[in-house]
């Protein structure tokens, strides 16, 4: 479910990019002319959606990495040193 959510946020990011590019790709904005109202709205909202999607993806990945660090720290605190493999020779002290 988390992966599906992350995929949806990536889709939002891609939709934002598409919105920014759409006026020029579909050519309803003539080149070298002042931007129409629709173009301004599309580019603005597309940029906002792209930033939102990108930030969301980064935040989700950062949260997951932070959880992994916390889990590793908890495991180390609970278990202490890793268990000795069977048959390992004890280290002799001189």
């Amino acid at each position: 479910m988390t992966r599906a959510g992350l995929a949806m946020i990536a889709l939002i990011f891609l939709a934002g990019l598409w919105l920014v590019a759409a006026p020029f790709a579909v050519r309803y904005q003539p080149p070298h002319a002042a931007w129409t109202g629709m173009t301004r709205a599309d580019v603005g909202i597309g940029a906002a959606l792209a930033v939102t999607g990108f930030g969301g993806m980064i935040a989700v990945i950062a949260g997951r990495v932070r959880e992994m660090y916390a889990d590793a720290a908890a495991t180390a605190a609970r278990g202490g040193d890793p268990p000795e493999p069977p048959g390992a020779r004890p280290i002799e002290k001189r």
Binding site: I9, M38, I45, V60, I61
Partner: peptide, 24 residues
Amino acid sequence: MGRYLSGLCAAGLGLCGGGWLIVT
């Protein structure tokens, strides 16, 4: 918990953006 909140916030903002696009 942070990543769930981030995902929910991003999705909410996306919903607002989509709605605003329709209105526009």
